[in-house]
Design a protein around this nucleic acid. Structure first.
Lengths: 241, 241
DNA sequence: CAGAATTTGTGCGTATGTATG
DNA sequence: TCATACATACGCACAAATTCT
């Protein structure tokens, strides 16, 4: 393993093992190579391997027993999140037979930043937006954190409607938006920020997938801008062509 | 800034500043807040801020001058990589008026892993594949590293054809594949592995966007499986709906 | 069943990296 | 720049649980 640059060796190794487990290198219940072998393979001290394993054990992915070895405890199949014109969180999760849930964790009314004015095509003097922060959960596990912005003048009661119904689709419908479609999605990745780590229960420094999207109504007018951060180790995005 | 294991504070802050610069929080030529202010904002010692700034300076993103301040030297607009049924690397890059380049960095013939057998729909006894490792470059900057697999029995001379033409499209055409389209794309993110860091000239522990795709010919038969790792700080994927 | 071999668990000393003031 | 504290990583040794012969 290559020497440093601000990321501890044990963390790099832990992330490697995590993706190996996810890719099925060792099946659930399967046995990992011995600490001996792993330390030789990564070219590090056994203590370092043990630190990495202990991290994954604490997260319930692995378990070690003295004299026996280290075993894969849980290899949760990653959720798949299709990106298309009509993706709705709850439908997707339900289709994969998991219990969906959204939790309103913050909201507010604020002045739109320039990039938001452009994306929502706000006109002069109507630059106020509602901001809605929602944590998405599947089977009790946090999978994504989304920040949503809506033009405040068009959707004055959006926050309370969402609070009542727990659904953005329904909150928009209450304001006369019968249908909306996803126009464009931008996808990037970066390291999680501390607040994101907290909500998504990620290790600090874990990667997040970020999607930026614009939803438009039937007339093509933007009704919602949304920035969603997915826990990259729990979800995979797919695009069908 | 929150105290946490495995990732140095200065790295977390460097990554934050990098995404802020990319998001245009400070324009090119713009002045960053003083180290004083930044250290207060992140709740860390000024030394730590300086370490983060020095990292970004070494990468040519920032520059500091005594008595004046720290300035944004380079805010390269991120390349946008659209994902659709007919995306070809060179077309995309050219359209954004950058000089594209692909470099063959490795190849080989090997037995297909089970998941490859499934994705390429290989029949029994024809499980050999060609592997092609290509580094993609735009304007002299590495943007992605892709591993490509092809059924060896159908495309016996693929590697040499690619070496001659520098184009997968042409190498496939030489084997009678007039056209192909992208069937499905899976997108995930993880930390770069050491070898990826080396090729993409990434800092260790930097995130990569990973896309897995299957290309099929006009008859719908898989001709290529490809896994591409993008430097997440240099590229953004987009999906048009 | 005894004893050897294997594998994880633990302790200590040292050197270097990270973060503060 | 210096001093201090803690985290990271290494190397060695040995203990404890389990498996193999």
């Amino acid at each position: 393993m290559e020497r440093t640059a601000g990321v501890a060796l044990w963390r790099q190794i832990a992330e490697r093992l995590r993706t190996d487990i996810r890719n099925g290198t060792w099946k659930e219940g399967g046995k990992l190579p011995t600490e001996q072998v792993l330390s030789a393979r990564f070219g590090v001290n056994r203590h370092t391997i043990r630190r990495a394993i202990s991290e994954l054990s604490a997260q319930g992915l692995l378990s070690s027993r003295q004299g026996r070895g280290t075993f894969v405890e849980n290899a949760p199949s990653p959720l798949t999140y299709p990106i298309g014109p009509r993706t709705r969180f709850s439908e997707i999760i339900s289709r994969q037979s998991r219990e969906p849930g959204g939790r309103l964790i913050g909201s507010g009314r604020e002045a739109a930043q320039p990039w938001l004015v452009e994306k929502l095509r706000l006109s002069l003097g109507q630059e106020a937006v509602h901001r809605l922060e929602v944590l998405h959960v599947a089977d009790g596990i946090a999978v994504s954190l989304s920040t949503n912005w809506f033009p405040a003048h068009r959707f004055p009661d959006l926050v309370s409607r969402y609070a009542e119904t727990g659904s953005i689709t329904k909150a928009l419908a209450a304001h006369g938006v019968a249908d909306y479609i996803r126009k464009k999605t931008e996808i990037s990745a970066r390291l999680a920020e501390p607040e994101e780590s907290r909500w998504l229960q990620l290790a600090e420094g874990a990667p997040v997938l970020v999607t930026d999207l614009v939803n438009v109504d039937e007339a093509g007018t933007p009704v919602q801008v949304s920035r969603t951060r997915f826990a990259a180790d729990r979800i995979q995005l797919t695009v069908e062509n």
